[in-house]
Design a binder for these strands. Sequence first.
DNA 1: ACGATGATGAAC
DNA 2: TTCATCATCGTA
Length: 205
Amino acid sequence: MRKILTQKFFNRDTKTIAQELLGKYLVRKIGDREVSVMITETEAYDGLQDKASHASKGKTARTEIMFGEAGYWYVYLCYGMYYMLNIVTREVGYPAAILIRGGVCHSEQREESRCCQQKATGFFGSPAGGCPQNDKLDGPGKLTKFLQIDKSFNCKKADKISGLWFEDRGISIQEKNIQKTPRIGVAYAGSVWSKKKMRFVLKNL
DNA sequence: ACGATGATGAAC
DNA sequence: TTCATCATCGTA
C-alpha cells in the first residue's frame, strides 16, 4: 500500500497530524532514484499564540508560507548551516507547521543516497567506504542533509513534482508507542510555551 | 562546552 | 545599517 498524502490530510489539527506522521514515509526523488525515510520524530508549531513558532511575530516574508495552504513545504536555514524541513498545516490564514525532526531508513537506501550525495558534494563517505553504522537520522539537520533538502523546496508543494512528498505505506502506530515531550531548542518561547508537549517521538524502534 | 556560519527581525 | 539571536551538530 502506497498512498500519497495530499492537502486534505494536512488541512486539520496540527498536533493530531504531527502524531499521525509517525510511521509515515518521507520520499525524496534524487535523479532517477527514490530515497525514503520512515518518520520517527516530529514537532508541532501551531497558531499565532505559540511563542515558539516563527509565526508568533506575525506574517513576514519568511513566515508567510505558514499562513498559506496546507501541504506546502516551509524550509529555512538554521544556525547558518542546517536546513529545517516543515510541512504547512491548517487552513489559509491560520499559521501552523510541523517540523520533521527524525526518521529511519533502510541501509540499501542509505547507500544510494550516500552515493548521490558523494557525487553532488564530494562530502560524504571516505575512500574506505566509511558510511555511518546505523540507520537513524536523529535530528532535523541530519535528515535534510541525508535527503539533500535545501531552501529550493521552500514554498513548494509536497508532491511528486517538487520531488519530495509523504506516503502512507500502511503502518499504523499505537497511541502507547508515541512519546510526548517538550520541543527542542525553544527556551526563548517562555515558561508556558517552551514546556508544552508538542514533540512526538516513536518508541520501540 | 563550544564554535561554525548566515538568515532573520528589530532597533537605530 | 548594525546587532543579537537562532526550531543544530560535530568535535572536545
